[in-house]
Computed example of a mutant assay.
Amino acid sequence: MKQPHHPAPAEMTLPRVLSAVSDPIRLGVVRLLADDRERGWGDLRAPVAKSTLSHHLKVLRDAGLTQTRQEGTRCYVRLRRADLDARFPGLLAAVLSVAEADQVGSEVSVVE
């Protein structure tokens, strides 16, 4: 499998990051990953088809919000909190705070 591209922090742009979190499903994934735990793609649950969820994960990765790691046939994803906080100080905390208050993306969950 081809290794996915993860943009360096300097390559992350504000419009792309904001566009990535503008979708409620993607924002729900970010909220879920905000606990700084790596999650398996197959453990994520959202009210969309698996192919659609895969697309959402790609958008988050391409924007620089997440890091994807493959181990055998499984893929894992984690939030790139340190890179985001270094590039856009305070942005992630503000977005997560409002998303939590408004329950945006609460339909995204994880199988434990």
Rank of each mutant, 00 (worst) to 15 (best):
residue 49 A to I: 08
residue 49 A to P: 01
residue 52 T to H: 02
residue 53 L to Y: 06
residue 53 L to A: 01
residue 54 S to M: 00
residue 54 S to L: 07
residue 55 H to A: 09
residue 55 H to C: 08
residue 55 H to M: 03
residue 56 H to P: 12
residue 56 H to Y: 15
residue 56 H to K: 15
residue 56 H to V: 10
residue 57 L to K: 13
residue 57 L to W: 13
residue 58 K to I: 10
residue 59 V to F: 07
residue 59 V to E: 08
residue 59 V to G: 06
residue 59 V to P: 05
residue 60 L to A: 04
residue 60 L to I: 07
residue 61 R to M: 11
residue 61 R to V: 05
residue 61 R to A: 13
residue 62 D to I: 03
residue 63 A to C: 08
residue 64 G to N: 08
residue 65 L to Q: 06
residue 66 T to R: 10
residue 67 Q to N: 04
residue 67 Q to S: 11
residue 68 T to D: 11
residue 68 T to K: 11
residue 68 T to V: 15
residue 68 T to G: 01
residue 69 R to Y: 00
residue 71 E to F: 04
residue 72 G to H: 07
residue 72 G to L: 01
residue 72 G to Q: 06
residue 72 G to N: 02
residue 72 G to C: 03
residue 73 T to F: 07
residue 74 R to M: 13
residue 74 R to G: 08
residue 75 C to N: 12
residue 75 C to S: 14
residue 75 C to V: 07
residue 76 Y to N: 02
residue 76 Y to C: 00
residue 77 V to E: 12
residue 77 V to Q: 12
residue 77 V to W: 10
residue 77 V to T: 15
residue 78 R to M: 03
residue 78 R to L: 07
residue 79 L to N: 09
residue 79 L to V: 05
residue 79 L to A: 06
residue 80 R to I: 08
residue 80 R to D: 14
residue 80 R to V: 09
residue 80 R to N: 11
residue 81 R to V: 05
residue 81 R to G: 00
residue 81 R to T: 15
residue 82 A to H: 04
residue 83 D to G: 10
residue 83 D to S: 14
residue 84 L to T: 04
residue 85 D to E: 15
residue 85 D to Y: 00
residue 86 A to N: 00
residue 86 A to S: 09
residue 86 A to Y: 01
residue 86 A to P: 00
residue 88 F to I: 07
residue 88 F to N: 06
residue 88 F to K: 05
residue 89 P to E: 02
residue 89 P to T: 01
residue 90 G to S: 04
residue 91 L to Y: 10
residue 91 L to E: 08
residue 91 L to T: 05
residue 92 L to M: 05
residue 92 L to I: 00
residue 93 A to Y: 03
residue 93 A to C: 01
residue 93 A to K: 03
residue 93 A to N: 04
residue 94 A to H: 01
residue 95 V to A: 15
residue 95 V to R: 00
residue 95 V to S: 05
residue 96 L to P: 02
residue 96 L to Q: 06
residue 96 L to A: 02
residue 96 L to D: 00
residue 96 L to T: 08
residue 97 S to A: 14
residue 97 S to M: 07
residue 99 A to T: 02
residue 99 A to V: 02
residue 100 E to P: 04
residue 100 E to C: 00
residue 100 E to S: 12
residue 101 A to Y: 10
residue 101 A to R: 15
residue 102 D to G: 01
residue 102 D to E: 14
residue 103 Q to L: 14
residue 103 Q to V: 14
residue 103 Q to C: 12
residue 104 V to L: 14
residue 104 V to F: 12
residue 105 G to P: 07
residue 105 G to A: 06
residue 105 G to R: 04
residue 106 S to F: 15
residue 106 S to C: 14
residue 107 E to C: 04
residue 107 E to V: 06
residue 107 E to P: 06
residue 107 E to F: 10
residue 108 V to M: 01
residue 108 V to H: 03
residue 108 V to C: 03
residue 109 S to M: 08
residue 110 V to A: 11
residue 110 V to L: 03
residue 110 V to K: 02
residue 110 V to F: 04
residue 111 V to F: 08
residue 111 V to L: 15
residue 111 V to T: 14
residue 111 V to Y: 04
